[in-house]
């Protein structure tokens, strides 16, 4: 039987996830949005590990390994995209990167 209570861990994971979500919604710098996504993935991994430790099963930690690999590949591709976007548009503000939006000139708001 585990020597801890699961509820505080899940509450901490939820708070971290909410902070990451707030960061994605509030910040307009694309690097800060990526950082917030990493925080959210980390919080999800925390919830997985807490659940796995609660039931004494290894599946939670296995899932954390998969989340880790996914976060690593996601951040590498996303940072390559950020570099390209910065070289083409000279900005990291997501309000400026609206070339896919209808009715605007490409690349300029």
């Amino acid at each position: 039987m585990p020597s801890f209570q699961t509820q505080p861990v899940l509450i901490v994971a939820a708070i971290l996830f909410a902070l990451g979500l707030t960061g994605v919604l509030v910040r307009r710098n694309i690097i800060f949005m990526l950082i917030s996504v990493e925080i959210m993935l980390n919080a999800a991994g925390l919830a997985f590990v807490a659940a796995g430790a609660r039931w004494g099963q290894p599946d939670g930690q296995v899932m954390f390994l998969f989340i880790l690999a996914m976060a690593a590949s996601e951040i590498s591709v996303a940072l390559a995209l950020v570099m390209q976007a910065y070289h083409q548009h000279k900005t990291l503000d997501v309000e400026e990167l609206n070339a896919l939006k209808d009715g605007t000139e490409p690349g300029f708001g």
């Binding site: 390994l65 998969f66 690999a69 996914m70 690593a72 590949s73 996601e74 590498s76 591709v77 940072l79 390559a80 995209l81 570099m83 390209q84």
Partner: peptide, 17 residues
């Protein structure tokens, strides 16, 4: 599958970057 994902991530990052 995670191996595939990492491979695709490497190739994609090298191509995009």
């Amino acid at each position: 599958l995670v191996g595939f994902l990492l491979m695709a991530g490497i190739v994609g990052a090298a191509h995009i970057g």
